[in-house]
Design a protein around this nucleic acid. Structure first.
Lengths: 191, 191
DNA sequence: TTAAGACTGTGTCATTTGACACAATAATGG
DNA sequence: CCATTATTGTGTCAAATGACACAGTCTTAA
């Protein structure tokens, strides 16, 4: 919960009572390695903040191949936006790759925060703008990088993830096969 | 401007005075084919809403190759979020591929709308959530589709774009070379 | 109207990639 | 502690892709 406070503080100042109101809407939880956080055909009713551990957010292509949409790292928030904002059911899945500690903000809490007062509404708007901006920056970065560059970027910016998550999932995450990622790794260790 | 009104109406109801306030913050403009809307090292100070025409939003890879980040279609809004929200300068570029009609909302107008009253603040929050959700849906869809599927998807959902935008730019947009896209098109016409 | 430039279609070829197969190693649960 | 399962490293080969080259077509501006 302290981590969550620092997470929110990162978006700018917020009065102490409002910060407390915000944190009071959140509840804590844990997952064991292998547990599913989201099952197919579920409606996602919470935003999650992950304090420790890694999760695998994935779906399936038309050919039935599993596709990694995101590997979720600690100290980040996540939900399936389309399901959360518009109460749609999702066909995607999300599974803990390690033991996980998280905080959860249910939609009812999210709505309460937005309508509590002006400062909180503005704060949520600011966070939404940050996240939107970050998503686009990330998508554009991926468009500009080759598979090898994406792997190097991961090594640089998230070595813990490379260490703790199976190679096959990292490979799918950066958009290639397990074997090609292995070729890249072999080449890098040779050099 | 009427198109812009309908665009906003699509996000939900808004009282007439507030809709007028919103539209009054916007100004109209045009571009000729080939004009640059955004130049490198510029700070993007507006959200744009395009009424007609197509634009090419692009950047460059580490190898100096031009990479299409988006082909912008009519009846959509666009800006470089990271630059607009956080007053950073961008190294990307945006150029009109055809003659273009647009409306422009400057940051000052955007700030004025958000702070005018509660209904408008909520309305902007709703739009931001919609756009964020749509960005993620689009990114995830692209992860799941092959190059050929992405092209078929474009043909289905935006045939005007396929018709009006050079093949080389479409190819870069779906993440492949001009030649490979041509192979796909040849195969499709043969079948 | 015409010349210059841009865009498209196409073939060849070297390179990269993915699929498959299997041995070696690591992790896990009884 | 051992057996089972999952994961990783690796080679071979077919298929897909990108780079290059060039001719034909379409646009555009003087």
């Amino acid at each position: 919960m302290e981590m969550l406070r620092r997470f929110f503080e990162g978006f700018g100042p917020l009065s102490a009572p409002n910060m407390d109101f915000l944190l009071n809407q959140c509840t804590e939880g844990t997952l064991n390695k292998g547990d599913k956080l989201i099952q197919p055909s579920q409606k996602v009713d919470s935003i999650y903040f992950f304090e420790s551990g890694f999760l695998h957010y994935y779906s399936y292509s038309n050919l039935g191949e599993r596709v990694t949409l995101k590997v979720i790292s600690p100290n980040s928030c996540w939900t399936i936006m389309d399901s959360f904002f518009h109460q749609k059911s999702t066909m995607d899945e999300c599974q803990a790759l390690t033991d996980v500690q998280y905080c959860e903000l249910k939609r009812s809490g999210y709505v309460a925060i937005k309508s509590e007062n002006q400062e909180l509404a503005n704060f949520i708007q600011t966070i939404t703008e940050y996240i939107l901006s970050a998503k686009v920056v990330e998508a554009n970065k991926n468009s500009k990088l080759s598979v090898e560059e994406r792997y190097l970027d991961l090594l640089q910016n998230n070595p813990a993830m490379v260490q703790e998550v199976p190679v096959s999932i990292i490979a799918s995450y950066i958009g290639t096969s397990r074997e090609t990622l292995h070729r890249i790794r072999r080449k890098l260790t040779a050099a």
